[in-house]
Amino acid sequence: MAAADRTQEVLDAAYTCLTRFGVRRTTMDDIAAEMGVSRSAVYLYVRNKDAAFRLLAVRLHEQALERARKAASADASIADRVRGVLEAKLDLVLHLRGDSQHTAELLDAKARLFGDICTAFTSDLHALLTDLLRRSGVEDPEDAAQICVSLVVGLENTPDARPLLTRASDALCAGLADRAP
């Protein structure tokens, strides 16, 4: 098995342990036991527990960003593309919060381990939206992108987030279209 595949197995095991114990209480022994290997075998693929969790956070955020990029470049209306980008962020949040109370730790922009990853992800989404809105002729695309990001962040703790995102993004895009030059 390739080293990259084994690293992915380590990250999968780290995620399983995260759902059970959280970042602080998970040990390298827990990750090794979840994989069915020795602790020294895990060290062949990650430097330590913090590195495993950082790689896991990067993987999850990059997967969401890739979904956002696909949505932004889809052959669809501007409203559908904006909604697709915002859904990528919302889906990441709802997935992590739904799996366990601990998995949401990967979303904490103030956390020592993940803050820079979360901040970079949000910045990348903002840049993606800004470009999408600029190409669509929206006035003040940077401000409009910030409003879009704020919209989805505001919905993250709402019980009916998915249906509300559809309605809210449609209304937002209609308002942006009205202001286009």
Rank of each mutant, 00 (worst) to 15 (best):
R179I: 10
E105Q: 13
S169M: 07
D12P: 01
A127F: 06
L132W: 14
D143Q: 08
L128R: 08
A76E: 08
T27V: 06
A104F: 07
Y45Q: 07
A79G: 07
C148G: 02
K70N: 09
R69E: 15
M35T: 06
I147T: 08
L128C: 12
I147Y: 00
A52C: 01
R47Q: 11
T19Q: 04
T103F: 00
A88R: 03
T26D: 04
V82Y: 09
H102G: 05
V149F: 02
Y15H: 14
D29G: 14
D50M: 00
F21E: 01
I117M: 06
I78R: 14
R81C: 05
L65Q: 12
R69Q: 15
A51G: 09
V149N: 06
K110V: 07
V23C: 05
V23Q: 04
G175A: 14
R67Y: 01
L155V: 07
A120W: 03
A120E: 15
Q146I: 05
D108H: 12
K70D: 14
T103L: 00
T130R: 15
I117K: 02
L92F: 08
A76K: 11
R54C: 06
L96T: 07
L96V: 10
A13I: 07
L92R: 10
A33V: 12
A51N: 14
R179T: 12
R135H: 12
M28Q: 05
L151K: 01
F53A: 10
S136T: 12
T122S: 07
D29I: 10
T103R: 01
D160L: 08
D12Y: 15
R67D: 11
S123W: 08
S77C: 09
I31A: 05
L165A: 03
I117Q: 03
N157H: 15
R59G: 04
V42H: 04
L129E: 11
M28P: 02
T26K: 02
L90M: 05
L65I: 10
T19A: 05
G154N: 02
D75M: 09
A3V: 03
F114Q: 04
T158D: 04
T166M: 02
L176D: 12
G84I: 14
A3M: 00
V10P: 02
D12T: 13
E142G: 15
L92C: 13
S40I: 02
R69S: 12
D108K: 12
R6N: 02
I31Y: 09
V58L: 08
K89A: 10
A41D: 12
D124F: 00
F21P: 04
A120K: 15
L94E: 05
E105I: 07
A174M: 08
